[in-house]
Simulated scan of single mutants.
Amino acid sequence: MSRYFFYIRYLPEIVNCEFLAGKCIRILHAYQTKFKLRNIGVTFPEWEQDSIGRTIAFVSKSQGVLVILSQQNYFVRMAEEGYFQVGAVQLVPDGQEHCEFIYYRERRLEKATPSAKRRMLKRLQLRAAKAGVEYVHKPEVSECIEVPFVHQLPSGSSSGADFLLFVGRMECEQQKPADFNSYGLGNRPEQQGSVPCLRPIIFDEK
């Protein structure tokens, strides 16, 4: 089945790419949550070790949902003020090989952050209170978490809570089922939610 995409490029000469990527994903999360969608994936055509890059793109089999997403107020306003270049929704070209990537959420690192630990503590305390028992804090056991390279993006939930989104990337040999979470990310263990490498397509336009 055909896939469509549009991209956003951050235009300022000096820019925090991770902050803007996190903001764009937050807009996607709100959009997909509102309309109960899970069919839009994100990709980062300029992904490098030192930066997630100046470009973020959104991919879906539905052209219509991408058109509406591209018209979200934040994207339109940032384009009008000269901060974003928002590309048109277009078809991923057929007849050529695309390297496929799965961008995924690395929850093991997220759970180790101080904010995540505070949220967990609060949940445990509330659970104990509802059960009518006293919560007894257990000493933490230090553990070494070995994970592939990730980028850290400031993001937020639909409840308004801020947190860091740890995003990793893996290459896959062929296109995988387009199952994404509300943040547009795939699933690494189950190898679902792949998106095409759009770097040659986008930068051929320049």
Rank of each mutant, 00 (worst) to 15 (best):
G95F: 05
V89H: 02
V76R: 14
T55L: 08
K111G: 06
R108N: 14
K117R: 14
L28H: 14
G95T: 04
R108P: 01
L28E: 12
R119F: 12
Q72F: 02
R26Y: 15
R105D: 05
C99E: 13
I27N: 05
Q90V: 14
Q96N: 00
K122R: 11
R107P: 00
V59C: 02
M78N: 15
V59Y: 01
E48R: 15
H98I: 02
I102N: 03
V76E: 06
Y104D: 08
L126Y: 06
A112R: 15
P93C: 10
G53E: 04
Q32I: 05
S70P: 02
E100R: 10
P114V: 15
L109C: 01
L69E: 03
E106T: 14
Y74I: 09
I40Q: 02
T33M: 01
G41R: 09
Y104R: 08
T43F: 08
Y103K: 08
E106G: 09
V42Y: 01
S70E: 00
Q90S: 11
E100F: 13
F44Y: 13
L124F: 14
Y31G: 03
S62V: 04
V86S: 05
E97I: 11
P114E: 11
A112H: 11
E46F: 06
L121T: 07
P93T: 12
V86C: 04
T43V: 12
L69K: 05
Q125W: 04
I40W: 04
L69C: 03
T43D: 02
E48C: 05
Y104C: 06
E48Y: 04
S51F: 13
G82L: 07
V92N: 06
I56F: 03
L124P: 02
G87M: 10
G22T: 15
Y83I: 15
Y83C: 08
I52P: 03
D50F: 09
G64M: 10
V86N: 03
C24F: 06
G82W: 13
E48N: 08
L28W: 13
A57Y: 02
L124W: 11
E100C: 04
S70R: 14
L124G: 03
T33Y: 05
K61F: 00
K36G: 02
L126H: 06
T113W: 09
K122T: 12
Q125M: 14
S115E: 11
G87F: 10
L121I: 07
E46P: 00
D50I: 10
V67Q: 12
Q125K: 15
H98M: 04
V92M: 04
Q63E: 13
S51L: 14
